[in-house]
């Protein structure tokens, strides 16, 4: 059957058809990145952040590595030093946003439903609703997942991957894309090191193998150990306030 006009080509000849038409084939060179649309919106977000001198960070990890706990500590400890905003990404509920809200920080929750990652489009709409002030810091906490979020640029300046010592030290080898695309790695829950078989040296070796440029900071959000290093790194990334 002809897919265009629905005529049955085996019962009558096409060229006798009463509205004479011919089929033509044309090869189009598309050469377009499949994530092009997301990348465009990512760049749009990046331009927005740059224009307003906002430092945007994309926090990624597996579920339960301590992204939200790290944010709670950071927002509380650095309160008054910087203006913070948080975008929370989860499949369901506002539980994380509620925790952030309790620290007094402006937060927007994105529920992705079935989606396994945030994309630039969702972040764009969240920004339109939040209207963050200039010279601030925007944390975007991605959906807990070490696979898909690595592919989607949100327009962030820095991508921070968090792993914890209750996970295997071979996470960087098992999920290399995330570690390869990140600009900082935080190893969390170091207070539990005496109780778990996690090999810190091996973990760092694996991180270096996947991404030799990735700096590593060890922290414990429970005891506060190492958090000063993280705050130091964060402050070094904050851009100098522009004169009005």
């Amino acid at each position: 059957m002809c897919a265009t006009c629905g005529c049955s080509s085996d019962t009558h000849d096409h060229h006798d058809h009463n509205h004479d038409h011919s089929h033509s084939k044309k090869i189009v060179d598309v050469e377009q990145d499949i994530l092009h649309q997301n990348n465009l919106l990512g760049e749009r977000n990046r331009g927005y952040f740059e224009a307003k001198n906002i430092l945007a960070l994309n926090l990624v990890s597996s579920p339960g590595s301590g992204k939200t706990s790290l944010l709670e500590r950071t927002l509380t400890d650095l309160k008054g030093e910087m203006d913070f905003y948080v975008i929370e990404g989860d499949q369901r509920t506002t539980r994380d946003a509620d925790r952030i809200h309790a620290t007094g920080t402006k937060v927007t929750q994105i529920n992705t439903g079935k989606g396994c990652h945030l994309d630039a489009h969702m972040v764009m709409h969240a920004l339109q609703g939040m209207k963050p002030k200039a010279n601030s810091v925007m944390f975007i906490e991605n959906v807990g997942n070490l696979v898909c979020p690595s592919m989607f640029d949100l327009g962030e300046k820095e991508r921070v991957v968090i792993m914890s010592v209750t996970e295997g030290e071979d996470k960087p080898l098992k999920y290399p894309d995330m570690f390869h695309s990140s600009t900082l790695c935080i190893i969390n829950k170091t207070d539990l090191l005496p109780y778990v078989p996690f090999n810190l040296d091996k973990a760092k070796e694996y991180i270096q193998q996947v991404n030799h440029q990735l700096p590593v900071i060890e922290v414990s959000c429970t005891t506060g150990e190492g958090l000063q290093d993280w705050y130091g790194w964060l402050k070094s990334k904050v851009l100098i306030e522009e004169e009005a």
Partner: peptide
């Protein structure tokens, strides 16, 4: 590339 079959 995409090969498009069009009807003229």
């Amino acid at each position: 590339t995409i090969t498009i079959q069009s009807t003229v």
